[in-house]
Design a protein around this nucleic acid. Sequence first.
DNA 1: GCCCTGTTGATAATGATTGTCAAAACCATT
DNA 2: AATGGTTTTGACAATCATTATCAACAGGGC
Lengths: 134, 134
Amino acid sequence: MKRNTWQREAVRGALGANDGFISAQALHSALHSTGSPIGLATVYRALADLAVKGDADSLQSPEGESLYRACSTNDHHHHLICRNCGLTVEIEADAVETWAKDVAAQNGFTQAAHVVDVFGLCTACTAQAAASAR
Amino acid sequence: MKRNTWQREAVRGALGANDGFISAQALHSALHSTGSPIGLATVYRALADLAVKGDADSLQSPEGESLYRACSTNDHHHHLICRNCGLTVEIEADAVETWAKDVAAQNGFTQAAHVVDVFGLCTACTAQAAASAR
DNA sequence: GCCCTGTTGATAATGATTGTCAAAACCATT
DNA sequence: AATGGTTTTGACAATCATTATCAACAGGGC
């Protein structure tokens, strides 16, 4: 049976209080800075649980860290990420969902998961890049 | 000044000879198995150089490894990857291409690149998993 | 061939993540 | 409120990919 502990609530709360994606390590130190004695391993476990239950989503930063964030909707969705400033926009992609499922099924694959993320430069960073290139 | 070494050519060749994404570690052992005494650090450096020059693409696998593939600008496609045995199937995704471009443009993003890959269990591994779960 | 400088590679170092396991916490039940 | 069976925790060790180090080496212009 799953039990409710203050540690899990703390992680869930800290995630929700944060706007963008945050690393497990950063979340752990954020919790520590508020006086919480929660352990690092526990933060990792809580995040993994949240991700499995669909209450959080995760992605890999270009540097290879796992980043997490509270899921604003229960729906499965994807992200448009600025590769310069990290700004993240949630995007709906029903068409892609069904496409991924279909293409997997057509090739005999089961348990299809997919990685669909779009990286680019947001408006601000595009302007900035243009300015510095000048 | 950049120098031409057989090591860099070996890495470029091995990447090109491979269809899907491959990890730096796997590429290194593949090279070793052909008798090449190339060092692991050199493989990492060569891959980083290729990625910077735009001759290779990289993405993070769900497990956190960095995967690389030769960048064939004239033949952009995606992959259906068995998470158990590594079998890779190339998939066409014109619909996804245009979708990615559109969604980026709609949000003011420029220089849109996208990571679109589907992970699942291939027919053989699905059967195997079912058998061992029994 | 010589010399200067970029490159290599064995190994150590780094840093995130996961495994271990005894102690503590949870919660249904008494 | 006390008990007891189980889950969870957390300090620490272990693991794994990747990066840094640095002396030895090789490319290429002279």
